[in-house]
Design a protein around this nucleic acid. Structure first.
Length: 554
RNA sequence: UGCCCGAUAGUAUAAUGGUAGUACAUCAGACUCUGACUCUGAGUGUCUAGGUUCGAAUCCUGGUCGGGUAACCA
């Protein structure tokens, strides 16, 4: 095998660990979500990082639910998380774990620490403990319970476990250093009492381990070699290492490595805010196509490949940055451009009557499904006397750089005929209601035998067979590049009022019939659209996935 | 205010003491049965002041700016 050239600092670290012969040369990572909400694009970065990095080194990755706080966690979230990770294309095989699997072992280890005088039960109130912890500049004070004997602690801890004490009555703390400059080392909490049923262990426990106590031990028991987490856990690392040192029974050590979480311009990523958007009805649900959730992106038309590619392109560093949403949009455009079937759809129809075309005749013209992929085949599209084009493809008084249809001008209807506009029909208010055109029967297929050229080609839908439908255009949810970054303003002030536009007079060619739910199409020149799962063929609804470049300066 | 972390084009990243590259974005041009897609080209960058060195984005020191951290959340 070729030597691996590290692409980021984490891979670099792994290369060094491997070169030093650490942990029997294993690479084993884990993705450890708390099942308290839906996964979003930020989690996707972490999923790709954990699974991708391990796989690069021939290692494996666990899925582990970090479910140590029963007040926030639900089975519904567990299910959605598994679905989303699978959809992204990753497989944890038989390595599905829960932090709650380790409640017994964690308890035993706590007893061990108590026995060795390294943990104690504290009966002080939360306020007192907090006050005693000191400040960053002032050392903390030791708790009066700090020197309770192991023997006593053992009995008390047992009572804690069996429910003798009420919530908040006492906690188990690690005995480390109340004057450490790192606040996390000032006798951190290991257990608290929560008389709440747990989504997996039910009423078995009323004491639950804290993150810092549970996470490193879970890593250790699973044989994790590289425990990748986000930057805010950087100052927790000494504590992570402290617990692992106390637990160790061999040379093996998991290593915590931190990277910066994903931020994207004009998106909000915090679970609290996403929940607010759903709860207060700014979006329809967690899977609203405007949401940054995995399920939202899926409905929007994002493919797993495009998201994985995006995760690869944003890179891994410790820099707090904001990635331009344009990169994400580029990734899906690039992927769909290769895969999406082309279809003609008119979103703002202008009626055209081809006056020299026979009344009852319906011809079929031959269209290419994907110009970049012959294997996607061809289709027949009906053509008739009455057709629709985009209203913006006609100008009664064409601007200088406008090449499309205008009075007296000839253009091509894609795959069909050249047509020439002869007459503009208006209502009493002067609004254009239809155009009368003539077609050249010799140009069938789109080319003139005499070799004359036209400057523009238009997409169109024939009234015969056309499916009248509604098209929903989903745009960015926020107008500001950084809706979170304004200290004095709420992020809701930057909601984009035009993030959802409903176009209800659209026509689409009949070829869309039978399309699978959530299949992507490219509408000629209009962009990429995704068939919504809850639509019927008779009335399809599309999610616009990405906008094309701004053509307004035409 | 202590401790920890970070700083390379507009944005995100690479270069691990030896020519500062790449992608997105932007602009210009070419092509085209859509002005899309594609292709070609262009501009712009090492936070700052010192030091070490033949040579510093890289190593050292000071400064500046930004982020994290003082939950019985994770």
């Amino acid at each position: 095998m070729d030597p691996i050239v590290p692409k980021n600092f984490i891979q670099q670290q792994i290369v060094e660990d491997l070169a030093a012969g650490k942990n029997d040369m294993r690479v084993h990572t884990r993705f450890p979500p708390e099942p308290n909400g839906y996964l979003h694009i930020g989690h996707a970065k972490s999923i790709c990082l954990n699974f991708g990095t391990a796989s690069l080194f021939g290692g494996i990755t666990n899925l582990r639910f970090d479910d140590t706080n029963p007040t926030k966690e639900e089975t519904e979230y567990v299910d959605s998380i598994m679905e989303d990770v699978r959809w992204l294309g990753f497989d944890w095989e038989d390595r599905l774990y829960y932090a709650s699997d380790y409640f017994d072992k964690l308890y035993d280890f706590a007893v061990d620490l108590i026995n060795r005088g390294k943990a104690y039960v504290d009966f002080q109130s939360q306020e007192v403990i907090s006050e005693q912890r000191g400040t960053p500049t002032r050392p903390g004070a030791e708790s009066p319970y700090r020197n309770t004997t192991p023997k006593e602690n053992l009995l008390i801890f047992e009572d804690m476990k069996t429910g003798k004490y009420n919530e908040g009555a006492c906690v188990l703390r690690a005995k480390i250093d109340m004057s450490s400059p790192n606040m996390h080392l000032r006798d951190p909490l290991m257990y608290r009492i929560l008389k709440q049923p747990h989504h997996r262990t039910g009423d078995k426990w009323c004491i639950y381990p804290m993150y810092d106590y549970a996470h490193g031990q879970s890593d250790y028991w699973e044989g994790i070699t590289h425990s990748i987490c986000t930057l805010e856990f950087e100052v927790h690392r000494p504590l992570y290492d402290w617990f692992v040192e106390e637990l160790k029974d061999s040379d093996y050590r998991p290593r915590q490595i931190e990277f910066s979480r994903l931020n994207i311009t004009s998106m909000v990523m915090s679970k609290r805010k996403l929940l607010q958007l759903v709860k207060e009805g700014y979006v329809k649900d967690w899977d609203d196509p405007r949401m940054p959730t995995i399920c939202g992106l899926r409905r929007r038309g994002y493919t797993p490949e495009s998201i994985r590619n995006f995760a690869d392109m944003v890179g891994i560093t410790k820099v707090d940055g904001v990635t331009d949403v344009a990169l994400l949009e580029y990734c899906i455009r690039e992927d769909l451009n290769k895969k999406a079937q082309r279809l003609m759809c008119v979103t703002d129809p202008l009626k055209i009557v081809i006056t020299n075309y026979p009344e009852e005749l319906v011809e079929e013209v031959d269209a290419i499904n994907n110009p970049e992929d012959e294997s996607m085949g061809r289709r027949k599209v009906p053509f008739s006397r009455v057709i629709y084009i985009e209203r913006e493809d006609f100008m009664e008084e064409p601007a200088s750089k406008f090449f499309r249809l205008a009075p007296g001008r000839e253009v091509r209807l894609r795959y069909a005929y050249f047509i020439k506009c002869n007459e503009v029909i208006k209502d009493e208010d002067g609004n254009i209601v239809e155009l009368h055109c003539t077609y050249d029967p010799d140009t069938k297929g789109g080319n003139a035998p005499d070799g004359r050229k036209v400057k523009a080609t238009l997409h169109w839908v024939a009234s015969s067979g056309a499916i009248a439908c509604e098209v929903r255009l989903y745009d960015r949810l926020f107008t500001d590049p950084d809706p979170d970054g304004h200290k004095d303003k709420d992020f809701l002030e930057f909601l984009n009022p035009d993030s959802l536009k409903v176009l209800d007079k659209c026509f689409i060619e009949p070829s869309v019939k039978g399309a699978a739910p959530l299949s992507n199409f490219q509408f000629e020149r209009l962009g990429y659209f995704n068939v919504d799962p809850d639509t019927t063929v008779e009335k399809p609804v599309f999610n616009r996935t990405v906008s094309l470049k701004d053509n307004s300066k035409k």
